[in-house]
């Protein structure tokens, strides 16, 4: 085997090492370049990630804020419901107070009417005035258009009947007599029960719409009849029935008292009669 000369060997080695170094440095430069590029990419990615992170953090924070706000809204909604419920309760309570107030006002009006009627009924002992007060009471307070007052009389055979003693806007009743227990007037007297008809249902104008027996000691001493109502009065209301009851219970004593008083000459004579009892 033939061996190469040393010069040739040296030459080859120098060239190869140079080539190696060149390659080495070129590759090193390339690698470095790649590393730098990679590092740049990494930096950019880090930058992106940190930006993303900031965004996520802020989103998370805003999510929390939204959660807080939702919770607050929920709480406020509940509070609103509570307030609405208490307002509704207060409204209901107010309405019930208002209704009660109206009821009280109506009751007060009724009491006032009854008080005035009763005081006026017993304010006089003059018979014509007592009858006039009854007539006025029915006209002014009830709205009666025509009123007749009948008292009990007896025929020769002791049969009771009704005879008119006062007529207001129904003068046609004067001089007539009503048989006991016949017709609404006679029946009201015989039974001591009020006869009251709804005005709009009245068909026969000659018949009364209300007959109020005037009671004394369990018996009727007469009957008060309402034949018609004022144009504006369409129906009877509660206070009217109360007034009818008052008349049924109190008119008799006023009428009988005025009749007895008429027999005496003066208040002093009437007092003497009382004192002699």
């Amino acid at each position: 085997m033939k061996r190469r000369s040393t010069d040739e060997d040296t030459f080859d080695f120098g060239a190869r090492s140079e080539e190696f170094l060149e390659t080495f440095f070129r590759k090193g430069a390339e690698f470095t370049e790649q590393l730098l590029q990679e590092a740049q990419k990494m930096r950019e990615r880090i930058q992106e990630l940190s930006e993303e992170n900031v965004q996520l953090r802020s989103q998370l924070a805003s999510d929390d804020a939204v959660k807080d706000l939702l919770a607050k809204i929920q709480a406020l909604e509940e509070e609103k419901l509570k307030i609405r419920r208490s307002v509704d309760n207060a409204k209901r309570e107010f309405q019930s107070y208002e209704d009660r107030y109206l009821e009280m006002e109506q009751e007060l009006d009724q009491m006032a009417n009854l008080y005035v009627a009763s005081s006026q009924l017993h304010a006089t002992m003059e018979a014509p005035q007592v009858l006039s007060v009854i007539e006025q009471m029915l006209m002014q307070f009830v709205g009666a258009g025509s009123v007749g007052i009948f008292l009990r009389g007896y025929s020769d055979d002791k049969t009771p009947y009704l005879r008119p003693v006062h007529a207001f806007h129904c003068e046609e009743i004067c001089g007539t007599t009503i048989e006991w227990n016949v017709g609404p007037l006679g029946e009201a007297a015989a039974n001591g029960v009020q006869f009251i008809m709804e005005p709009e249902k009245a068909v026969d104008e000659s018949l009364p719409v209300a007959c109020i027996p005037v009671m004394f000691g369990g018996d009727a001493i007469g009957v008060i009849a309402i034949y018609s109502l004022l144009e504006q009065k369409k129906k009877f209301v509660n206070v009217d029935y109360e007034l009818f009851r008052l008349l049924a219970e109190h008119a008799a004593s006023a009428i009988i008292g005025s009749g007895l008083y008429a027999r005496t000459e003066s208040v002093a004579a009437a007092l003497d009669c009382f004192n002699s009892l």
């Binding site: 005035v116 009627a117 006026q120």
Partner: peptide, 12 residues
């Protein structure tokens, strides 16, 4: 003219 009515109005 009605004392009764006067009394009622005064009451009101």
């Amino acid at each position: 003219d009605s004392p009764m009515m006067r009394q009622l109005i005064i009451f009101a």
